[in-house]
Design a protein around this nucleic acid. Structure first.
Lengths: 222, 222
DNA sequence: CGCTTCCTCCCTCGTTTGGGGGAGCGCGAG
DNA sequence: CTCGCGCTCCCCCAAACGAGGGAGGAAGCG
């Protein structure tokens, strides 16, 4: 049973999937048992594949993202270990991914060998952290905590308001969307600004976008 | 001489590069003569590789992007044809890429065969447009033109103001940055909003970010 | 030379925001 | 049960903002 590690791939880019598949299949101890272009599709197929390792791209526009995919995959198939694949620019979310149940974390700009090692380690239930990644991760951990304190300082309602804010809506429009009075929205906006130490709503928009509280793609063209 | 097509890869993600290399090398008529993690590196190596086809990822954070890489590569080595590889979400820039001298344009979520076809076509000096991409591209062309009209409608000064706006600055701060009076800035902002048919400056921020007039990375944390 | 475009500045008016205060109501921790 | 906290709403006020108008000067063009 320890002959071959079964692997499934989740990435919205077919070209990348094919490349990974061919690359990974060139190693005898790995076999690819499935591919999916989205988190939803992967979760649907998961009980058919029952892979030892699920390699998930973090950034998948449209449906649920890699973190949510990880969380649900861990719930559906505890045996399956998840290795998250990320772009270089978004390792702020590494900690979130690990917290969601991922055991491995590999940046796409890392040495390909790293991915291989991570998959093999994951199949054994071990986390393998590349040295360069580990350093960045530690930094991120502290930054993440600092940010969490800041984000956590925002109540749920305030985060809702912030997201609406970031869509370019006025207080009045937000009030209608959340079915509260204009005054309430003003209170929330005021609290958000003072908690985050921002001067205007415009800076709040930038804050929300930078933090990934909302993505540009979610915002409809004004 | 028509035995083998020489190909070089430019992508900031080593994992993706390796996957592509292994995949492409599995075809006898292709041979990979070089890899680079950035546009700058690719341009430095270009006269050593002299590939028939250069496959360039559009999105490369940090240095010059895929479009600029394309432009310079075409200038340095006219023999080399460029195939641009893009994420699904950014084919707004396809037209810009083609204008920069790319002959091929493949989305990462396309069938891997498409990339193969595009590379082979490029080596013959032909553009091969996947049907699904061609449709999207036509749409984009019209949208691009519409957008160009809209963007061109903004005078240079207005674009400057818009970029400042998108940084989350107030009219007064913009006035100081551009060394004009507050009134002038108000005029520009007003013109921007009416030209773009936007209601507030918040929407102008979103407009600027969506259009790529300014990137999130350029905006310092408020 | 007129003409247009752009940049600059000024004014007024009404609306939107942000900061300050206060005040109920529900809910969970101590 | 009391206290704190989150959510809701209210009032007032000053600053910022957006809409509308007008106007002068520099540059480019027919």
């Amino acid at each position: 049973m320890s002959e071959s590690v079964t692997v499934a791939l989740v990435d919205d880019h077919a070209v990348v999937r094919r490349g990974l598949r061919v690359y990974l299949e060139s190693f005898d101890d790995l076999s690819i048992v499935g591919e999916a272009a989205s988190g939803e599709e992967a979760l649907r197929q998961l009980d058919l594949w029952l892979p030892d390792v699920l390699v998930v791209d973090l950034l998948m526009p449209g449906g649920i993202d890699g973190i949510e995919t990880t969380r649900q995959a861990r719930a559906l198939s505890p045996h399956t270990q998840v290795v998250v694949l990320t772009s270089a620019t978004e390792d702020e979310r590494a900690v979130a991914a690990l917290r969601a149940g991922a055991i491995g974390y590999v940046r796409k700009d890392a040495d390909p060998q790293t991915l291989l090692d991570a998959i093999r380690a994951a199949a054994r239930g071990r986390t393998l952290l590349d040295a360069s990644v580990a350093g960045a991760l530690l930094q991120e951990l502290t930054r993440e905590q600092a940010r969490q304190r800041a984000d956590a300082a925002l109540t749920e309602r305030e985060q809702e308001v912030l997201r609406e804010l970031a869509r370019g809506r006025t207080n009045h429009e937000i009030a209608e969307a959340l079915v509260v009075s204009d005054e309430t929205v003003k209170t929330h906006v005021g609290n958000i600004l003072s908690k985050l130490q921002l001067a205007h709503r415009t800076q709040a928009i930038i804050y929300a976008l930078k933090r990934g509280l909302i993505s540009l793609d979610e915002i409809e063209e004004p």
